[in-house]
Nucleic acid binder design. Structure first.
Lengths: 132, 132
DNA sequence: GGTTGACCTTCCGGTAACTGGAAGCCCCAT
DNA sequence: ATGGGGCTTCCAGTTACCGGAAGGTCAACC
């Protein structure tokens, strides 16, 4: 299979597939003409990677997960640990974003949004008091 | 004032201040010895930038906001527009992350996390059915 | 006066995970 | 043989910095 077919079947774009080869996530063979030659197994792995990335796992997490995926002797606790750590980081991000949202929502509500220059948003960002 | 003082007063690290000069966000003068020479106004701007960045505004947003900040003839609607767009993007990110969290939480709960290899997390990532 | 040590400078490289584009080969159909 | 699509490699750009190396500067201390 050529890269285009694999891209269509796995949902991972050709550029990304080449990148994944560069960083050693997959190792396709080469045809005589120099084209990458993929197997069904590569398609599976790429789809796996696509799903893992969609869940926000880093590439390094993906590397780990893929190794576990292929390891018959894995222990599910290993997988769970990776997922739990990732979950923690997602929750951290959510909290940070929610706190930003709270502040921004307040500021946007307070801002008249008209032709006048006075703006509570700028006032909040400013270290010096703008209008008393 | 030298960069170290400004960094302490504004809360923005020296490296970041130099970077902000590189990309034209601030324009300190130079002393005879080649050191950057900052004024109080630079401290204000940097603190402004620090707050804006902490609210998640991109550097380009910051550039816009700083220009509005310094523009006596700004209209608050301009500021509000930037903030509202940023708010939208934050809300998008939150939604994406929450959806990831939901999925991940389910998977983590389903995973036994013991010494056995069977793992619903891998099963979910896998395009082919793992166990039966 | 020399010598620390804390500053400051520039420049280079790296981060994460790709994406876009250029230059050029390959293959198939007309 | 020519055209179009697909494949290749390589280079550069993205975001917002951080770390480190090599080297100049300054104030203080002996």
């Amino acid at each position: 299979m050529n890269i285009g077919d694999v891209a269509r079947q796995s949902g991972v774009p050709p550029k990304t597939i080449r990148y994944y080869e560069d960083i050693g996530l997959i190792r396709p063979n080469r045809s005589e003409n120099g084209y990458r030659a993929f197997t069904e197994n590569h398609v599976h792995k790429l789809a796996f990677l696509g799903r893992a990335r969609a869940l926000g796992f880093t590439i390094e997490d993906c590397r780990t997960l893929l190794a576990l995926y292929e390891d018959e002797n894995r222990e599910s606790v290993q997988v769970k640990a990776v997922a739990e750590e990732h979950l923690r980081q997602i929750e951290e991000k959510i909290e940070k974003l929610q706190s930003m949202r709270t502040t921004l929502t307040e500021l946007v509500e307070k801002c008249a949004g008209d032709h006048r220059p006075d703006c509570p948003i700028l006032a909040d960002l400013s270290p010096i008091r703008m209008s008393e």
